[in-house]
């Protein structure tokens, strides 16, 4: 009972982090690691700060909010 509640709360927390973009950098690193085998990236992955800067810049490069 208690463990299933903890599991549920954990899922809610992960959802909140994902929907808000709080875990975007961790996801990027995961994606980088996954693609490393296929693409053999020459560059090391972006730092957290660099990634966040680029991510935000790209996010606002178009119609993102409506009426």
């Amino acid at each position: 009972m208690l463990s299933s509640l903890r599991q549920y709360l954990g899922r809610c927390w992960r959802f909140l982090r994902q929907v808000s973009g709080d875990d975007a950098y961790e996801r990027y690193l995961q994606c980088y690691g996954k693609n490393q085998v296929a693409h053999q990236h020459q560059q090391p992955p972006l730092s957290r700060e660099e990634f966040f800067q680029l991510w935000q810049q790209e996010k606002w490069d178009g119609v993102k909010r409506c009426c």
Binding site: V19, C31, C66
Partner: peptide, 21 residues
Amino acid sequence: DNGRDYVPTNKWVVFGHHFAA
């Protein structure tokens, strides 16, 4: 998939983003 703008995402998360937008 490039980990930045093209990212396969949980449908509830996409729903949240889309609704907020």
